[in-house]
Design a binder for these strands. Structure first.
Length: 387
DNA sequence: CTACGACCTGT
DNA sequence: CAGGTCGTA
């Protein structure tokens, strides 16, 4: 039976490309709620499906290693002895290698120089600078639009651990099986037509999708019936707001989900998805005060917070946001502690600030009198009513 | 535009 | 209530 590849058993099964950890941290990037499809299958080894194939990724200081499993079972292919055929195969193999590297570069958007961006963000924002020293290498994946859209329809009123299970069952139920590695079978993400099938809603409800089952099936059907198979991909080539509004015509897609899809699969680096968590960050760490003391996140609040952060961080604000979002996840809190043991001074400063912020926040509702960077800037920035 | 309840399920 | 969205006031 085929097994998950591990680097320690030899580099001959692996390809590599130069990539510093300051540019990419697999552990943070693959487990911070962007994609729900990667699992740590061995220490520091991440296995998942990308472009219809199963990959395992791992990294050392300056190198990103990747292994692509061959779903065509060529691992056991026989030597034919025909040298010309062998040569042809090797040629084809090399072509594929180039293609695979290119796919990986595309998926991680390695053309975007993250270190440079971190420097710029840190110069503009002292709070980011503090976080940035620990949470390096958090970058945006460039996901396949269909997978991204339908995964994020599952995220409404939901938390990461449950979403992960749901997406897994979605692929199991409706996606094509690819490879089996050590007891686990990997499935491709379902096609639009598989998702649009009339039986899907009931099927997914049985799998615990709740009311989202209907959203998934109806969105797929609407895309197929009204927009066409190339529509989603095509949104990569239109401006952010246009793509955002187009996505919002789909059932189950509100402002937050639309922003996630824009940012994570449609090349809209300026999109800032605002959930309650990001709202907390805006209030706690940036003294963001909205005009009306909102109880929940309205569309207007989405826009205002988006404008505020774009104004602060610039055209890659969505990327910046994901670093801070990642740094706030419970599962990564240990990283802060380990780091701050080495730097006790920073630790004390941080804790002090945080408890201060927390205190004032709990009293804030009655007296929102804080001075803020935002209200002035955002009001001038928001000339139009729409984003 | 804002407010509010309903909606699935799990902790 | 949780990393929302929809329908209705």
């Amino acid at each position: 039976m085929a097994k998950h590849a591990v680097l320690s058993s030899g580099t001959h099964l692996w390809r590599s490309l130069a990539c510093a950890k300051s540019e990419l941290r697999l552990d943070l990037t693959l487990a911070c709620g962007q994609s729900f499809r990667w699992r740590e299958t061995a220490e520091g080894h991440w296995t998942g499906v990308m472009r219809g194939r199963v990959w395992t990724l791992t990294q050392t200081d300056d190198t990103l290693w990747y292994h692509v499993y061959d779903e065509r079972k060529c691992g056991t292919r026989k030597r034919t002895g025909d040298s010309s055929e062998q040569k042809l195969k090797e040629f084809v193999k090399e072509e594929e290698d180039g293609e695979e590297e290119e796919q990986l570069r595309d998926y991680f958007q390695l053309n975007v120089k993250l270190e440079t961006l971190y420097t710029e963000w840190g110069a503009a924002d002292p709070h980011f600078k503090k976080i940035a020293n620990i949470f390096t290498g958090v970058r945006l994946l460039r996901q396949e639009p269909t997978e991204c859209l339908f995964s994020f329809i599952c995220t409404s009123n939901n938390h990461i651990s449950r979403i992960t299970g749901m997406v897994e069952r979605l692929c199991q139920a409706l996606g094509a099986p690819l490879d089996q590695l050590d007891r686990t079978t990997y499935y491709d993400f379902p096609s639009l037509s598989a998702l649009a099938d009339g039986s899907v809603e009931t099927r997914l409800r049985d799998l615990g999708f709740g009311y989202r089952a209907q959203f998934l099936q109806q969105s797929a059907k609407k895309i197929l019936d009204s927009y066409g198979t190339q529509w989603l991909e095509g949104l990569r080539n239109v401006p952010y707001l246009e793509a955002h509004d187009a996505l919002r015509t789909l059932p189950g897609v509100g402002t937050k989900v639309a922003d996630c899809v824009c940012l994570m699969s449609l090349d809209k680096a300026e999109a800032v998805p605002v959930d309650t968590h990001v709202w907390q960050i805006a209030k706690r760490d940036y003294q963001f005060a909205s005009s009306g003391r909102q109880k929940s996140i309205t569309d207007k609040l989405h826009r205002d917070i988006g404008h505020f952060f774009r104004n602060l961080w610039g055209p890659y604000a969505g990327w910046t946001q994901s670093v801070l979002f990642c740094a706030d996840l419970k599962k990564f809190q240990q990283l802060k502690e380990t780091q701050s043991v080495e730097q006790p001074r920073n630790q004390e400063e941080r804790v002090e600030e945080e408890s201060d912020a927390a205190k004032s926040e709990s009293k804030e509702r009655s007296k929102p009198k804080k001075s803020n960077l935002c209200s002035e800037k955002t009001t001038t920035y928001v000339k139009k009513r729409r984003m």
